[in-house]
């Protein structure tokens, strides 16, 4: 996976406090992150972790109490030109005019984002075709299926060809087919050089799409890094060998002497790769179904850094 290096988003030490019921609540307490062209960053966190506030600070909708945001070197809170480089698709169906058709929505929002009428019309045609909505160009947004509405929302977010796309829960509430289509679109956009910041509660989607992951908890970044590296870091040093049938009593004793354990046809070796070969020799010539290293998924990583008490103690 090769990635260009141009920095599209740079957020530094973002802070935001709100007053709620007479108390001051820290929504975001010093979040910094960067995003490069062609990169998908999954921005994860529980409800109230501060994700949406961060997205709104990065897009210029909410002014940070402290910290800076730069989109291609421009501050979206000071320089309106920065907004021409940002596409924002907010959660749910908050991005479209229900009574306008797909084509009308795209053309209207195109001009609203700074395109000329002609450019907006041309982009509308291109995007309708790309998102396979050409046959729904004259259908009002309220009459589209939920999946089509979401695709149209993303198209509206892209109408002015932004270099940065902020996607808030893009697959929420979609059926399997529509969610797959959205995932393909996100991959394509990244491969074309668009930087995508994705917030989602669907951690499998994040794991599938994101080059990097940033986990927010209580308004602070608690884990951040390349997705694969993060998964590796949180994976246990453990191998699982699946046998066709359970080992004999003698083999079991031999395995136990090496430090491995077995349950039914599954043998577990809780040590480094070098020791694995000794275990395999002890099992030879029994037929093997699979040998794999135990690997954490993003859900485990997420729970480990946000709610360690939620995981069984033996995991890592």
């Amino acid at each position: 996976m090769t990635r260009p290096r141009a920095e599209v988003l740079h957020a530094e030490a973002l802070h935001k406090r709100y007053r709620s019921d007479g108390r001051e609540v820290v929504a975001v307490g010093g979040v910094s992150l960067t995003l490069e062209a062609g990169e998908v960053l999954a921005f994860l966190g529980s409800n109230g972790a501060g994700k949406t506030t961060c997205i709104k600070m990065m897009s210029g909708l909410v002014r940070p109490d402290a910290g800076t945001v730069r989109v291609l070197g421009r501050d979206p809170h000071q320089d309106a030109r920065a907004l021409t480089q940002v596409g924002v698709v907010l959660e749910g169906t908050r991005n479209l005019y229900w009574r306008l058709t797909s084509q009308e929505n795209l053309e209207y929002f195109g001009v609203l984002r700074g395109l000329s009428g002609r450019q907006a019309r041309r982009r509308a045609t291109v995007l309708l075709e790309r998102f396979r909505l050409s046959d729904r160009a004259r259908t009002q947004a309220q009459e589209l299926s939920r999946g089509m509405q979401q695709k149209l929302s993303i198209a509206v977010g892209l109408v002015h060809e932004p270099r940065l796309l902020l996607l808030d829960e893009p697959t929420l509430g979609l059926d399997v087919e529509a969610a797959e289509e959205v995932k393909v679109l996100v991959r394509e956009l990244a491969s074309e050089g668009c930087a995508v910041l994705l917030t989602t509660h669907q951690l499998d989607v994040a794991q599938e799409l994101a080059h990097r992951v940033c986990i927010l908890h209580g308004g602070r970044v608690v884990a951040e890094g390349e997705t694969q590296a993060l998964l590796a870091r949180f994976s246990a040093q453990r191998y699982v060998i699946q046998l066709e049938e359970p080992p004999s009593h003698a083999r079991l004793q031999s395995l136990q002497s090496l430090g491995a354990s077995a349950q039914g046809g599954e043998v577990t070796w809780p040590g480094p790769a070098e020791g694995l070969y000794g275990v395999l020799q002890a099992l030879a010539p029994l037929p093997l179904l699979r040998v794999e290293r135990d690997r954490a998924d993003l859900t485990e990583v997420f729970l480990k850094v946000t709610r360690p008490e939620a995981l069984p103690p033996e995991r890592g």
Partner: peptide, 14 residues
């Protein structure tokens, strides 16, 4: 109420 207000605030026109 519709949710489109934020989109208007994201416009470079203001």
């Amino acid at each position: 109420a519709m949710g489109t207000l934020e989109q208007l605030f994201l416009s470079p026109f203001g």
